[in-house]
Write a protein that binds this DNA or RNA. Structure first.
Lengths: 338, 338
DNA sequence: TTGAAAGCGTTACCAC
DNA sequence: GTGGTAACGCTTTCAA
């Protein structure tokens, strides 16, 4: 436990018999350093095992080579895949990721962002709990380094944005179900406070408008944040009198999908038979389920990769832009005629 | 983009008309600071919107209140749940998590650990690619702050350890299958370079030894790291002539489970009917699968929580210890007589 | 209780 | 090309 004193650039200077500034130059590949100097310094470094202190470097240079990442739920498969891709890309470029859980409320998110600022991160990846909150918007605005929003759409905010085109996928799915004769379709999804939900609702509603059917029941059910919530809501829907019960369901988000499936399986209802079902997000294990569930899918890792690329471009001084990634509706065994 | 100069403790001192040291004392709740001083400083802080610079603090105090976390795969459900729990617990205690992907090889892991050291993290959570590598052992040893190993068991290393008792769960599962008449059971799992695999093999082999059956084929198949590998290996096994084909399979790890299920479903083989199957790790969606797959389950979030608690105890100066968390075999529809 | 000043380990400017 | 030195923003003695 004896805290042996740290080996500093000073020690290297002494051992090599040169000035600290020269040692520093060697490390930063400064143009004007003689070969002999480089050799002496490198020998000394090897001899005493010096490693630069990144904290001191940060204080001096004002850059930490650390980027903050805040999401709501790391155990969510989408965020897991995304994080994995981001960590790889960013670390290749010499950046580390500092992670925080979004507390789930605006005040909390705001505090987190300020925390990141105090840690002096060079940039921020953000999937905030809401993208309509003025408090959050303010703290993002106060943060003077690059920001990339992950499927969040604050207005009047200079930031990079990566979007998934949920609307188009959802619209295709809904149109297909309508074409199959469904009139009462339930879209069960998360809070309207964030973009993905709003986009899903939009695609859903647009499909109904477009097809001009009468008696269509297109009431998106939002505010279902968790697996257990989704399970309960599904039960409620399935227990409705037959005339009011939806003949098809569309889920929004991975948690909701699991909850809906859990409920159906509890109630011994078979999707594709007792009702039609479209999962609003793809999951690897959906492939082993029988019947095969229709999905609106997209590439999660690509999302992370794209966000990282965008971030690196911002970090190198380019202008923020918005990139929208496609989603694709895949009809499988559970898109059936009424 | 005009980088307005940072508001420092110095500015506060000037505005409040006091010394910087006094401002510092107010912030660190030093006992000897008069109420009037506190008021003046707080007013000044509010007036100019000062927020302490954590990097400068770190350099001065030698502590970053940042803990490193290295795992192989954030998209793995287990690590996701674990990470989530850790981030919560640690951040409650005022610590942030800096994350890195394990490159998957010893040299890479070693470099990452040195990187963490340069970033001066206060401690390290580690799920290394191997726990038999001397290179990795050395870099962990060179790291002078607390370390908690996540289901990794380096010998001769002072570190906290959190283990899952895979052996017991696997042993129960294997015994059950043997009792059901299975003699040729395939355990398909990851690399033997890490503890979970070794423990699973141990439990598996112990069950065979203990039951003293003759002609038992107990050859664990290790070195299957990914979903696609598992799928290929399963295909190979299922295509074996009937006399050599296993009548039961046990998977080790979440990726393997998915791969095996994918293959079975491709080959139109039904677990519980065409062969018995035990998933060596639980997953939330296993509950919606029919037939219901037998599993060896454990509490993932508890794992993260326990690791965080252990870490905090180390951080407060307590001695490292090893905590082993239970696993539980749950026979469901896919543990069937031969 | 308060203030002055040293120093944490770097980098970058300025002489030489 | 190299060396000295002043910061970076903070905490922590040490005096007063």
């Amino acid at each position: 436990m004896a805290d042996l004193p740290r080996v500093t650039i000073h020690d290297v200077a002494i051992v090599a018999g040169v000035a600290v500034s020269s040692v520093s130059r060697v490390f930063s590949n400064h143009p004007s350093v003689s070969p002999s100097m480089r050799l002496r310094v490198e020998a000394a470094v090897k001899k005493i095992g010096y490693q630069p202190d990144l904290v001191a470097q940060s204080l001096r240079t004002g850059t930490t080579r650390t980027v903050g990442l805040m999401v709501r739920d790391f155990s969510n498969f989408f965020y897991g895949e995304m994080t994995k891709a981001m960590v790889s890309s960013m670390s290749e470029a010499g950046y580390n990721l500092l992670i925080m859980n979004s507390p789930g409320d605006a005040e909390g998110d705001s505090k987190m962002i300020e925390m990141f600022a105090q840690k002096r991160v060079d940039a921020l990846f953000l999937a905030t709990a809401s993208d309509k909150s003025e408090v959050i918007r303010k703290s993002i605005n106060a943060f003077k380094n690059p920001v990339v929003l992950l499927d969040r759409d604050f207005s009047h905010l200079v930031a990079g944005r990566v979007f998934a085109d949920h609307a188009t996928g959802l619209q295709s799915a809904t149109k297909d179900l309508i074409a199959l004769g469904h009139r009462n379709i339930a879209l069960v999804t998360g809070t309207a406070g964030i973009r993905p939900t709003r986009e899903r609702c939009k695609g859903f509603n647009d499909a109904f408008k477009e097809s001009k059917i009468k008696n269509g029941v297109a009431a998106p059910i939002t505010g279902i944040p968790s697996t257990s919530n989704a399970r309960a809501k599904t039960k409620e829907l399935m227990n409705l009198p037959k005339s009011k019960r939806p003949t098809a369901m569309i889920t929004g988000g991975v948690d909701v999908t699991i909850g809906v499936l859990e409920c159906l399986s509890e109630m011994e209802l078979t999707p594709g038979q007792d009702l039609s079902l479209v999962a609003g997000d793809d999951l690897p294990w959906l492939r082993v389920l029988r019947p095969r569930i229709s999905t609106v899918s997209r590439d999660y890792q690509l999302f992370g990769l794209t966000a990282a690329d965008l971030m690196l471009s911002l970090l190198s001084g380019e202008k923020p832009k918005t990139i929208t990634l496609p989603t694709r509706y895949e009809a499988r065994d559970t898109s059936r005629p009424v």
